[in-house]
Amino acid sequence: VLLLKIRATRSCRGISLKTQELYALVFICRYLDLFYSYISLYNTVMKVTYLATAFSIVRYMRFDKVVRQTYDKEQDTFRYIFLIAPCALLALVLNHRFSPTEVLWTFSIYLEAVAILPQLVLMQRTQNIDNLTANYVALLGAYRGFYILNWIYRFATEKHYRQWIVWISGVAQTALYADFFYYYALCWKANQRLQLPA
């Protein structure tokens, strides 16, 4: 959806480069297992897709002659370090196994939970949020939110399905969207363009 917006409108207005780069970092840290484990064709294709789209978005926003001029750097002020440092520390302390790939995987789970924050802050500052941006954020939130249903199903049907780190992070991630979803639903019901209160 985001690539569609950027390519079709030649603009990344209202999109946080910080969030996009954090997602690229999330996917790099999480999908290192592409090199040493195979789960299914679907799983591999999606991992490669996420990596490719994340890097493509960052490339457009940073380097495309037209698109990069529409990036509002002054408004996208969230500091990377405030998200990366706590997540890295937490991953070093709270993990299932103290190995490089497992700690990086855990770091990616924590970082993904909060990676939307720069985007949410930017949107709060944006007067006219376009529909594609609002829909993109809604879909991103719904994506992990729907996982919760899947986790409940797997918990009930699979014997050794215990993933506390993933579950707590996923619920926290979904909760961060609660406020956004509330206003998204209000505006959708009223058939209005999304506006977030300051």
Binding site: S37, I39, K47, Y50, H96, Y147, H160
Partner: peptide, 10 residues
């Protein structure tokens, strides 16, 4: 119980 499984989710 098997604590460490393959990370089969995305």
């Amino acid at each position: 119980a098997q604590l460490l499984q393959d990370h089969d989710e995305l």
